[in-house]
Design a protein around this nucleic acid. Structure first.
Lengths: 226, 226
DNA sequence: ATAGCACAGATTGTTAACAATCCAATATTA
DNA sequence: TAATATTGGATTGTTAACAATCTGTGCTAT
């Protein structure tokens, strides 16, 4: 039961963006991608259209698809949207979380911790996003969860663009504190901590760098075969 | 400077959904649409892909595209998402609205009023949605505004499905009260009124009808030429 | 030397024919 | 008669060739 190839392409690219292996501004040529995934151009084309709808890829007519480069203004708008959505998502999570959900959250925290311990930055960035996405799923509102996936993906691009040098992306224990509040079923506190966490991330962004600089596609999307 | 045809197709279909001329469950055949818009099947195909990404169309592999049919659970999730987003959007609007914006809002109210006076239900439904979209634009956060456009579109489908018999979709003057609160720059009150307005719409939905029933595509998408 | 132009290669966009799949109507069999 | 096979038409999905557009390079002329 393999997935449709289009999905594999989309997910590979999204993963690479979440990991910050693919950086803002990278050109996604159709030929290059169809070579990489050993398929024809039409499938690549549809995958790129999907990514464009998700707003993580910019499509310029007659000149190709590029990983989106959010402006500082975009960044502010995206983080405001995240606060709006994650506040509700978090309240839902407090109300709906089962014991299994809490266990999953704790397991995720452990993974994050391990990645940071190993100084594995790409993994840390990906897992950090994963925490918010997981929280969204636990909230049991797929509409909000989907928007959150989109926004966190775009946030990864922003962090890659404007906070690449930064030592710390998320204060070590903010995620852990949120999980504790959820476990205590303390809605107000969980929401407060999450809002503060998001403002903290946003304030850690330096809006004056501007280094695109991107490597070869094949190096970055190498091992897509499951 | 005509728009790309794909955009025209997408907008035509979205308009027809906003008006409730196209109802949930209607099949959108590729041949039928390319005949209607006098174009290639490939362009129709892309338009349908875009609409699928917007979640207003369901695409079933090998059996075509259908106008989405939101479930009652979808409806609850969509309205929760709207409350999360429109609360912020509304706050932004209070802070950012220029005199021109207020004028535009008043003009919109007048249009709504006129449509209701003329018992023009499709226009009333479309304009009612338009009010929320306009508010979103005035909030000056395109990220939130885009999600709002998607959610209001899906709301139109929901209202068409579950509240078609209903006499009143929006209490006559709730929109007007919101505009007044914005004009007074009364953030808290504007937010309260909007939240209440949304809960009011949601509670007016009867989750037990189930009439798909759809007319011919050509009758419904007749005059797309601007 | 530099600005403008023209050409060549590469990349994206379009088209139409072909293949695979689904659906409904008809025929077949217990 | 009712259930199941079969078959033809219609619809969606794929492919590869062709057309349009862009980008960069080298040439020409001022």
């Amino acid at each position: 039961m393999d997935k449709p190839l289009e999905t594999i392409i989309v997910d590979s690219i999204l993963d690479a963006i979440a990991d910050q292996r693919l950086r803002a501004g990278t050109k996604l040529g159709e030929q290059a991608l169809s070579d990489l995934f050993a398929c024809n151009r039409a499938q690549v084309r549809r995958a790129l259209a999907t990514l464009t709808a998700y707003q993580v890829v910019d499509h310029l007519p007659n000149r190709g698809a590029y990983v989106a480069t959010p402006t500082p203004q975009d960044a502010r708008n995206i983080f405001q949207a995240r606060r709006a959505i994650e506040t509700v998502t978090c309240r839902n999570a407090v109300r709906e979380a089962t014991d299994d959900d809490i266990t999953a959250l704790r397991a995720h925290l452990a993974e994050e911790d391990a990645a940071k311990g190993r100084d594995n930055r790409p993994a840390a960035v990906r897992l950090s996003r994963g925490f918010h996405v997981l929280l969204g799923r636990i909230g049991r509102n797929p509409v909000l969860a989907r928007y959150l996936e989109e926004l966190t993906m775009r946030s990864s691009l922003i962090i890659g663009l404007y906070a690449s040098g930064q030592a710390t992306l998320c204060a070590e224990d903010e995620h852990a504190q949120i999980v504790e509040a959820i476990e205590r079923r303390d809605e107000a506190e969980a929401q407060r901590l999450l809002d503060q966490h998001l403002r903290h991330i946003e304030s850690g962004i330096a809006f004056d760098d501007n280094p695109p600089a991107t490597g070869a596609l094949s190096a970055v999307l190498g091992d897509w075969r499951g």
